[in-house]
Design a protein around this nucleic acid. Structure first.
Length: 479
DNA sequence: CGCCATCCGAGTAATCGGATGGCGGTGCGTTACT
């Protein structure tokens, strides 16, 4: 199908007259019968890729999604567009409801489910009975990020694909390093000869990067200064739920800003409310752990501050990537402290099963649910499922530990580099060409973007020589 | 890692010193309970 025909189908199904950047190529690839891996920033219309492809192929489209809330969002969106043949299969459903859906799958066009649900034999058997147009893995980096450490069912998507007869597959993610892309492809057991990979840009030219070395005890005061300076709304990321709570409280006390904490200890109801309020501009600041963000597509987030550094540069880039979706100047600030790094190193070291745990799991053929963190348990489960020998298991754990430590070291490298941070990220993601924006990062000696209406007293940033606002914008749009 | 909070015994009436231990975070689904 040529581009003109696809455009007319786009018009027919969605009412759009043109594709956004990065949509057309993966659609043509899928329609050409090729497995496809596409990295495309969130908010640039990733879901349209499988939606339009799905309409133009016979059979059901199965979309594997990491979060129930994402599934619900997608179902609601499709139904809003008038597509009634949409459902998600999950644990929220009543038994009868689920039975009814499973026996009527032939009436469904878009089915959303979790990787865990695909482990269910009944579900797999029902799916085998009907023609499968496309197997979609949304947020596919979760395979690499969670498979071994957190949600082991992500590693079984390859087996599920095989059970379903190796269907045409589309993997979508916002950002992936070459290593993560390799993990995705090999874990899904995709034949490389039948694969097309489309890589979107990683760089976000309208985000200015800055790292500030701030000792832990000075972070709160420093943060308050930043909040005075930066326009809302924004996100502040933490490595600890308690600290996210505490700082949200402090911000409410000491500023006029509306701040809320968001993490896994909040009730489902609270989380929905907070997210909704944030999207409606009824909150200025979200103090969040990594629980917040996936699927959030709010255009006007002006800053993302990291109170603690994440465990990897992938996570960092994903989290700061939530800023400035509208293309307007935005800021990413990392409050870096070597104490934090040392703490993370220590935590990481304790987060792997020791030899005794490895040996007893192999001996008992079961994981003791009372032993260790979720990460340790997932790793032990993997050892068990792969039927590793003692030696293999120890090597596996050692390699895993080294990998995680390296990810953390690269994150530290980013924080400590005195050269261009944008180049550092770009190189990390294996990109060769990079066009630097006028306002790049502190490593390039650039000052923070001047902010509308800013009265700068305390920070006393000299504005002489700083590019004019209008020039900054025009430079951005030329990129 | 290095910093706290907590505990504990000493030995005196209410604290003190030293030791100890703890210290992240991500979500499905199922099932056994209140």
């Amino acid at each position: 199908m040529d581009e003109a025909q696809l455009k007319s189908e786009l018009q027919k199904y969605f009412g759009y007259s043109a594709f956004k950047d990065g949509q057309l190529e993966p659609i043509r690839s899928v329609l050409g019968g090729k497995h496809t891996l596409s990295t495309l920033p969130t908010g640039t219309g990733k879901s349209l890729i499988y939606q339009l492809s799905g309409y133009l192929l016979d059979g059901i489209v199965v979309i594997v999604s990491p979060l129930l809330s994402l599934m619900e969002d997608q179902v609601a969106q499709l139904k809003f567009m008038g597509e009634k043949r949409t459902a998600s299969l999950n644990s929220m459903m009543q038994f009868e409801e689920r039975q009814r859906l499973l026996s009527n799958l032939d009436r469904i066009k878009f089915l959303f489910l979790s990787p865990e649900m695909l482990q269910n034999q009944v579900v797999l058997n029902q799916l085998k009975q009907i023609p499968l147009a496309l197997f979609v893995v949304d947020e596919a980096h979760c395979i690499s990020q969670w498979g071994l450490d957190f949600r082991s069912d992500y590693l079984f998507l390859g087996a599920a694909r095989k059970a379903l007869g190796n269907p045409l597959t589309l993997a979508l993610t916002a950002t992936a390093t070459p290593a993560v892309m390799g993990d995705i492809i090999s874990s899904l057991h995709i034949d490389g000869d039948d694969l097309n990979v489309f890589e979107g840009a990683v760089d976000r030219p309208n985000i200015y990067y800055r790292v500030a070395a701030v000792p832990p005890e000075e972070k709160n005061e420093y943060l308050l200064q930043l909040l005075e300076r930066y326009p809302s709304p924004g996100i502040i990321y933490f490595s600890s739920k308690a600290q996210a709570d505490a700082v949200a409280f402090m911000i409410r006390k000491r500023t006029g800003l509306r701040a809320e904490a968001y993490h896994a200890d909040r009730t489902n109801e609270d989380r929905i409310t907070i997210q909704h309020q944030f999207l409606q501009d009824e909150l200025d600041v979200i103090c969040a752990t990594s629980a917040f963000g996936m699927g959030i597509n709010k255009p006007n987030i002006r800053y993302v501050i990291h109170y603690h550094m994440p465990n990897s540069l992938e996570e960092y880039v994903q989290e700061i990537g939530r800023a400035g979706r509208d293309g307007q100047p935005s800021t990413a600030v990392l409050l870096y402290s070597e104490t934090d790094y040392n703490f993370k190193v220590k935590m990481l070291q304790g987060d792997f099963p020791n030899d005794f745990a490895i040996e007893s799991v192999i001996k008992n053929k079961a994981v003791n649910p009372d032993y260790g963190s979720p990460t340790e348990q997932t790793l032990l489960l993997h050892i068990l499922r792969q039927r590793l020998t003692k030696e293999e298991a120890k090597h596996f754990i050692a390699a895993r530990r080294e990998l995680k430590q390296n990810l953390l070291k690269r994150m530290k490298g980013f924080a400590e580099t005195d050269t261009c941070r944008r180049e550092y990220i770009s190189a990390y993601f294996g990109k060769s060409s990079l066009v630097k924006p006028v306002l790049c990062c502190d490593g390039c000696g650039d000052e923070d973007p001047p902010l509308a209406g800013e009265v700068s007293s305390r920070n006393a940033v000299p504005t002489t020589g700083a590019p004019h606002w209008g020039k900054i914008l025009s430079d951005l749009f030329l990129l």
